[in-house]
């Protein structure tokens, strides 16, 4: 057996890219993503599995990266917030959160979006109660949650664009998409 803390090799696919990493066994997947891979879109809120901010998808399932050890994800496929959009095209959930006020400070948003994606991948037409239950482990201090439920519901129904009442609002929604392509 190797000594405590000695590094180990872990193979991972993150957002479709393969990585072979030499990692400390005690660095959580959260640290690995943020610090080794510099994918800082995944957030930390509590460090103890209590807030959901660090939610990522592991083989399609919502998992808390602050509790995951590298040795547990060897060979797995991870999706982080950086991998949610399809290239320059935002995921319907991303558009819905932007259009319907599903975010304010935005810090819980990456985890919230991934938990919502895990839900829609298994249940494409959830009820509002099912949305709340699926996201219940993700805390938000800004929104009061209602707009997040609205956003997930709209994304599921494919009704995001319908939220725009006129040309000005449609233009603003288009600006979100454009900004996603060319961050300032």
């Amino acid at each position: 057996m190797s000594g405590a803390g000695e590094k180990q090799v872990v193979r991972l696919t993150v957002n479709g890219e393969d990585h072979e990493l030499l990692v400390r066994p005690h660095a959580t997947v959260l640290e690995l993503l943020r610090e080794d891979l510099r994918l800082t879109g995944t957030k930390h809120g509590c460090e103890l599995g209590e807030c959901g901010a660090c939610t990522v998808l592991v083989d399609g399932q919502a998992q808390l990266s602050c509790l995951l050890l590298p040795g547990q994800v060897d060979g797995a496929c991870l999706t982080t917030i950086e991998g949610l959009a399809d290239g320059p095209v935002l995921h319907p959930l991303q558009r819905a959160f932007a259009a319907l006020g599903g975010l304010q400070c935005g810090y819980c948003t990456p985890g919230m979006l991934l938990a919502a994606k895990a839900l829609l991948d298994t249940n494409p037409t959830p009820s509002r109660q099912q949305i709340k239950e699926a996201l219940a482990g993700n805390l938000c201090r800004c929104t009061g949650y209602a707009a997040i439920v609205d956003a997930v519901e709209a994304a599921a129904l494919g009704a995001v664009e319908a939220a725009a009442q006129d040309a000005v609002e449609a233009a603003a929604l288009g600006a979100v998409e454009a900004a996603a392509r060319t961050p300032r």
């Binding site: 057996m1 190797s2 000594g3 405590a4 803390g5 000695e6 180990q8 400390r24 066994p25 005690h26 660095a27 959580t28 959260l30 640290e31 930390h44 460090e47 103890l48 050890l69 590298p70 040795g71 060897d74």
Partner: peptide, 12 residues
């Protein structure tokens, strides 16, 4: 960030 202390990991 609160971190883990060092340890070894073996997949049984």
């Amino acid at each position: 960030m609160l971190r883990l202390p060092p340890f070894s990991f073996l997949r049984a």
